[in-house]
C-alpha cells in the first residue's frame, strides 16, 4: 500500500482497510497468480476506492489544518544525509502524486518495483497493451514533472 499510495497522512487507514479486505477474501485466492500480485491488486482497488470517496468528501468539506505526517528519521544516519534523502524522496513522491492513479500504479509497480507487465496487468485488472500505453504516457509525464522540479538532481546527459 505504501508503494502505491506513497507517504500520506491516511496511509495507516489505507493499510488497515486493505489488510482487512485481504484477510476477508483470502479464502477465495485460487493460486492463479502470486500471492503478492493478488495482494497488490487488493491494495490498488482499496486505494482507488478511497480516492473516489475522498474526492466526494472534499467537495463538501475541508480540513482546517494540514495534517502531514513527518517521516521518522532513521537512526545511525547523519542529519545532512537524511535531509538530502528526504528532499529527494519528497520530490519523487510529489511528482508521482501528480500522475493519475492508474498511471502512477503502473509506473511504480513496473519501473520502480520491477514487476513484470503481466503481473501489473493482473494487479490493475487491464490488458497488457493498456498497461504499456499507461506506462508510456506515465513515463513521459513523470519526466516532465521531475525535470521541472528543483529537487531533481539527476546526472546531466
Amino acid at each position: 500500500m505504501r508503494v502505491l499510495a506513497g507517504p500520506r497522512p491516511d496511509l495507516d487507514d489505507l493499510v488497515q482497510c486493505a489488510a482487512e479486505r485481504m484477510i476477508r477474501v483470502l479464502p477465495r485466492f485460487e493460486g492463479r497468480s502470486l500471492l503478492s500480485t493478488f495482494s497488490y491488486g487488493i491494495a490498488y482497488r482499496t486505494l482507488l476506492g478511497h480516492d473516489r470517496w475522498f474526492r466526494r468528501w472534499s467537495r463538501r468539506f475541508a480540513f482546517a489544518e494540514d495534517e502531514h505526517a513527518p517521516e521518522p528519521p532513521n537512526a545511525g544516519e547523519s542529519s545532512e544525509e537524511a535531509t538530502l534523502r528526504a528532499r529527494r524522496s519528497a520530490s519523487l513522491h510529489r511528482a508521482l502524486a501528480q500522475l493519475s492513479p492508474c498511471k502512477r500504479a503502473v509506473i511504480v509497480l513496473h519501473d520502480l518495483e520491477g514487476m513484470s507487465l503481466k503481473d501489473v496487468a493482473c494487479v490493475v485488472d487491464a490488458n497488457e497493451r493498456t498497461v504499456r500505453s499507461r506506462l508510456r504516457d506515465g513515463r513521459k509525464k513523470l519526466a516532465e514533472i521531475l525535470l521541472a522540479d528543483p529537487g531533481f538532481d539527476g546526472d546531466e546527459p
Partner: peptide, 22 residues
Amino acid sequence: DQARALRWAREVWRETPPPDRE
C-alpha cells in the same frame, strides 16, 4: 531526459525503503 528521470526515480525509490517502525 526520460531515461535520466527514470533512472533517478529508481535510485531514490531504492534508497527510501519503508522504515521498520512504520
